[in-house]
């Protein structure tokens, strides 16, 4: 996979839990342009183990001098976000993937409603740059816990003016989805990124109000959940390996020296899909990619976020 070598140019503490990192190309040249909503996967070598985490690009897609990401320190971090917060310093170098967009704006949309919860604001930062550049009609609705957790609020107030609406939970402010989603003009698209409860609520409400499925967009990168250890066999590589509690199947495969395809590592894109040849237990599908029927068939699994509870699992890799 083609990767980009970057150097950390700046780090800023934005809220008590969020840090903003600025990356520049290691060789000083311009980085590739990208489209609003894109992310990169950052590769970190932590104590000899490679962690790869997806982060949305927040800067303006037109600014190719630097990339910007923001990382929220996760309470149950598997290492990645904690390392970014505690150990990463200006001048350090990593590899990142080329930008990938799994959350793109609908170019033919007549109006765009963006709904963010907490750190879910990040993909919208670059989307707003695109919307402003093309003069598109949009509204941004941003909800967060309390004033000190409202990352980038003053920047957004300044940049978006009356199109920006924010809701501070601790002040008792709530986004009224019924009101927002029940009265939008034909051709409006809605985009949501935030905690699972918010994403589910927006998807459900929009569907209930009769929004066409292809006008509803969400992005929710999943961190691979911590689970119980289990063993699996890699048929083509002729290996039996253990998936430890805090490692994903994909990471365990990579740690065993077996090359596997991947792209988003968050259960979204489908690139790492593997065929399940045999299993005697339950597959715990955590991805957003496979259909319910595919999940029920027990023939496929997305090793980036899913796990298994079984004695025997044989994969075609």
């Amino acid at each position: 996979m083609n990767m980009i070598n970057i150097k950390v140019a700046a780090i800023e503490q934005v809220t008590p839990l969020v840090k903003h990192f600025t990356f520049v190309n290691k060789d000083g040249t311009a980085l590739p342009a990208f489209s609003g909503g894109s992310h990169v996967v950052v590769s970190l070598d932590i104590n000899g183990r490679v962690h790869r985490n997806p982060y949305s690009l927040m800067g303006s897609p037109e600014d190719t001098s630097a990339y910007h990401i923001s990382v929220r320190k996760q309470e149950k971090s598997r290492g990645g976000s904690e390392y970014m917060h505690e150990n990463v310093a200006v001048g350090m170098q990593f590899k990142i993937t080329y930008p990938v967009n799994l959350f793109s704006l609908a170019k033919k949309g007549r109006k765009h409603i963006l709904i963010a919860g907490g750190i879910g604001i990040t993909p919208f930062m670059s989307q707003i740059a695109d919307l402003k550049r093309t003069g598109a009609d949009y509204e941004l609705h941003y909800a967060f816990r309390s004033p000190e957790h409202g990352a980038f609020v003053s920047e957004l107030e300044q940049g978006c003016g009356t199109k920006f609406h924010c809701y501070t939970d601790s002040n008792g402010e709530r986004l009224n989805l019924d009101e927002l989603l029940s009265q939008q003009p034909l051709g409006t698209h809605v985009y949501v990124c935030g905690p699972n409860s918010m994403v589910v609520a927006v998807l459900e409400k929009a569907r209930n109000f009769g929004w066409p499925e292809n006008h509803i967009h969400s992005e929710q990168f999943l961190a691979p959940p911590i689970g119980e250890p289990f063993k699996m066999q890699l048929a083509r590589s002729n290996k039996e390996i253990l998936v430890p509690a805090e490692m994903s199947m994909l990471e365990a495969i990579e740690a065993a020296g077996v090359e596997a395809d991947f792209l988003c590592r968050g259960g979204v894109c489908g690139r790492c899909e593997l065929q399940v040849l045999e299993t005697d237990g339950a597959l715990m599908h955590n991805d957003h990619f496979l259909t319910d029927a595919e999940k029920a068939s027990c023939k496929k699994i997305m090793p980036c976020v899913s796990r298994a509870k079984c004695e025997r699992l044989v994969l075609d890799i």
């Binding site: 083609n2 930008p99 990938v100 690139r271």
Partner: peptide, 8 residues
């Protein structure tokens, strides 16, 4: 192709 990557 839906997963075709920039730079590849």
């Amino acid at each position: 192709l839906l997963n075709l990557q920039l730079g590849s």
